[in-house]
Design a protein around this nucleic acid. Sequence first.
DNA 1: TAGATTGTTAATCGATTAACAATC
DNA 2: TAGATTGTTAATCGATTAACAATC
Lengths: 212, 212
Amino acid sequence: MERKQEVSKAVVQRLPRYYRNICELKAEGVQRISSRALAERMGLTASQIRQDFNCFGGFGQQGYGYNVDKLQEELGAILGLRAGRTAVLIGAGNLGRALLNNFDFSASGFKLLCAFDANQELVGKKFGGHEVRSSSTLFEFVDRRKPDVAVLTIPRTHAPDLAHELVDHGIRGLWNFTGEDLHLEGLGVPVENVHLSDSLMTLCHLVGMEEA
Amino acid sequence: MERKQEVSKAVVQRLPRYYRNICELKAEGVQRISSRALAERMGLTASQIRQDFNCFGGFGQQGYGYNVDKLQEELGAILGLRAGRTAVLIGAGNLGRALLNNFDFSASGFKLLCAFDANQELVGKKFGGHEVRSSSTLFEFVDRRKPDVAVLTIPRTHAPDLAHELVDHGIRGLWNFTGEDLHLEGLGVPVENVHLSDSLMTLCHLVGMEEA
DNA sequence: TAGATTGTTAATCGATTAACAATC
DNA sequence: TAGATTGTTAATCGATTAACAATC
């Protein structure tokens, strides 16, 4: 499942998009697809797609193309979606609750164990089927259940300290919505810093460019 | 304000991050910074920063560095944050309400005019100071008030049709949370497709890589 | 077999880094 | 003036594209 070669960052960033498109194709009932057709659909070149897939050994067949089922399985395996990873969410404010209620964690390879919040009025409530527990029990829970990653939907100022404490307690990845840029890669802990404002600023810029 | 040269996509994608870091420096009371110091802070090279800023004419001074105030103003102008753009949000479900309640649209250059939802129970309510109006009045509103962009927080299936209708009514950009990839660049309408699941899948992959 | 399409190597392109003269 | 640091050109590096032989 794991390939030897170091895979470039550019390729890794395209993997979720490949996976998403393959899932869509499957839902549409498509059973096989050529690099050419997939390229057209995704706005890439056929060459790039073949190069990308071949970083992982290549799972196509000459004269036929790529089998959609196989592609989905391989990409899923590469992304580690079947690894049965677990997560906790910290901070059940508006954004936290929006994720609890709406976001399909399992589609991205995670089982969400529960949420934590300091507000006692939220403790014991459930959102999207996920229980909110008291923050005071967080580290005891992490020590015992050993979730792989933590979703940070707490206020920004608390982020750096909490992140380090979580790493000390064995957390192996962070999905960080706090707005604070966290970098724990040096500790071997990957972080996905989500900056919605960056996305909206880019849109602001692009809208301005169009009228030029 | 607008520069002649075509600026590469890689540079444009870094602009919001530059702006964010400059704002932080200003908040910390820093008045000037060298490309070297900024590079260290952001995990880039000094060379890259100078190259990037020089795409827009260069706003530093030899022997001194970059003035933080000036940098903030210039980057803000390039991003178009002072252009007074307006937005409407469509779909006041969980995610829509999370944005209404928490997200600072003005920090990204937009004034959010109001929200729309088909659910009559939400119509008339306010979230984060933003009124929810009936979907049936959406196009009349867009025709009259001419918002620059629409924030799509509706169910995925409705996205493509609504997007095209909005463009017909003069919408000039989309911030798209529906999960459906929208591409209207051919019509001169930039779209920012936000895929939170891509981000979490990437994290899943990276966590797996660390243990290899 | 003939046609299609991959896997893979070579060529091109673009982005990053290094170096240094200009200048504050 | 001397020191610092930019703006800018040249060198390197990496990623994308093109081409084609391998093969289903």
